[in-house]
Nucleic acid binder design. Structure first.
Lengths: 317, 317
DNA sequence: TCAAAAGTGTTATCCTTACACCCATGT
DNA sequence: ACATGGGTGTAAGGATAACACTTTTGA
């Protein structure tokens, strides 16, 4: 049990900062010259930061000018072979190993980003187009992903099974939370630009979906998995909604996050049963049809039963 | 975004290694002289270890002589104020900051530990006696915890609510997964030896439950929360059971982990419905009554529907 | 034959899923 | 009046929780 001789270990904080509206779920992405896009990232300063979370909040505020609301730790990445974001560590030794503690942060709105920070909100589905099933499974799954994965699997049952499970092939259900399993499968099967970059392989197929620097797209996938899971048993959606909203708007936000269509009435019933929202009496004007009542989140419910979230009754028809 | 001047950042791996039998759930605890007990811990060596997980497996095997089965990352701890395990870092600078990446590992049996490694299996409930509700809520909750927490809360509604929620007071249900919330509450309310050690406060009450070095009991609490949650949707119990077992034994193992009594027939029905186990045809001898059939875990089910676990139908009567 | 533990049949209740329909507004 | 989206009543099916009972062994 000795301390490694060369302390070439760097610790950084990565942030997956999400927001959502009735149209899309968003992530804050940075652009680093023509090296490509990545996630906001900053070195962890042990002398300045009492905790990781405070450190993260600090530099997010410093860089973007807004305050993070909900924050939770996601995962710590440290496998060898990760690309170093050199720009952030100009004087790091050549063979330095970098560890990233990734956090998930939620903001209520797509706040304007200060010009100093070269970042922008992008839809999740810009990076993971196969994850948006609001209008049914995207054609690319049947057209590109399924055949290419099956080609990759050959007669390896293990691989075939993994593919079927992850993408809901052969009549298996599509499980929206398996974002990371799907991404890793595509990465392994040489279907992502990252596979070529990291492993030097030639791609088996051209698949839509923007890559990111280093393993940032993997972090993003972990974040989406976590969030899609969490939304069902913790009321995290309300971290993203405005103060008041119509039930349809709320439903659409959840749909955009899950990438699934939900069943209207059951969604409403679930809201009602859990007493998560209450009507304000006011009506929203000009929605194109009958005006909808405006609702607000009942914070008391959160206090009373912290274990409750949003039911996600999908439409199967 | 500069690299901190003094790179006094140490990265270590901590392991919560669990096992269970029909009587108790166990954790592997190390004893460090008279400094007290803690969790197995080792520095992370970036030059020797390609990934955290491989590093962890390596030194666990080196130290204890057995191989870890299931392994998953839990959480990364790095708040200032954590006590340094000096013994492991003899030449670390005085004000060094240590980061611990905690992992959960599961072994099928309480394997004998090599003498070189000063470790032993202890029941979880040795550290968290208030977590064992197999025979109803332990008296200490009503006798010590409830009054002391209410005294601590005063008329702070927030605190009262937290206490009620965490410990299932005033008719609220006991949620077995909230292990970490409960531990943190007791810590904050000056009811644990760690509160005195870290914060210098005098204890509000003497509460049973052994402390651990540094923040290891907090890590353990996180591990138990995770495991108790996971067992319900992933078949992790079978990582702890022997090859064959009777249904009662299986139920008792789950009960020991959850710290709850389960309803016999509903437990069996759940097993059956999910096709998680299959009978071997053989019978177990001499159980004190009618012999029980021996079952084994169906690994194929795991492959087919990876999202399935064990239902936990509690008895409420 | 009796204690002890294994193992089963049946029922009430609640939640999930789904169909089908009515309502209020703008053009 | 009619298109557009808001908002509800009801019912089938399945999962959950519980009661009470039978079966098979060892002492």
């Amino acid at each position: 049990m000795n301390l490694p001789d060369d302390a070439s270990l760097l610790v950084g904080l990565s942030a997956v900062i999400v927001a959502a509206d009735v149209e899309q779920p968003y992530v804050l992405a940075t652009r680093q010259g023509d090296a490509g896009a990545g996630l906001p990232f900053g070195p962890f300063d042990p002398s300045g930061h009492r905790t990781f979370e405070l450190g993260l909040r600090d530099w997010v505020t410093a860089q973007t000018g807004f305050e993070l609301g909900y924050v939770e730790q996601l995962y710590t990445f440290g496998d060898r072979g990760r690309e170093l974001p050199r720009a952030d560590y100009p004087n790091a030794p050549e063979n330095a190993r970098i560890i990233s503690i990734a956090y998930l942060g939620i903001t209520p709105e797509r706040t304007e980003i200060g010009g100093a920070f070269n970042a922008a909100w992008r839809s999740w589905y810009y990076y993971f187009p196969w994850e948006d099933h609001r209008n049914g499974p995207p054609a690319m799954i049947a057209d590109i992903i399924e055949p290419t994965l099956m080609d990759w699997a050959g007669d390896d049952f293990e691989r075939r099974d993994r593919a079927r499970l992850a993408f809901g092939l052969d009549g298996r259900p599509w499980i929206e939370e398996r974002v990371i399993e799907r991404y890793e499968l595509l990465y392994e099967a040489s279907m992502t630009p990252e596979s070529r970059r990291d492993l030097g392989v030639t791609l088996r197929a051209e698949l839509p979906g923007e890559p990111m620097l280093s393993d940032h797209r993997r972090m993003l996938a972990v974040a989406l998995s976590r969030l899609r899971g969490k939304i069902k048993y913790r009321p995290v959606v309300f971290e993203m909604t405005p103060e008041t909203f119509t039930l349809s708007e709320l439903q659409q936000v959840v749909e955009s996050l899950l990438g699934l269509p939900l069943h209207k009435q059951n969604f409403r019933r679930a809201m009602e049963k859990n007493k998560l929202v209450e009507g304000t009496g006011e009506l929203s004007s000009g929605t194109g049809g009958r005006p909808a009542e405006l609702f607000r989140f009942r914070r008391e419910t959160l206090r009373k039963k912290a274990a409750l979230g949003i039911a996600a009754p999908v439409t199967r028809t």
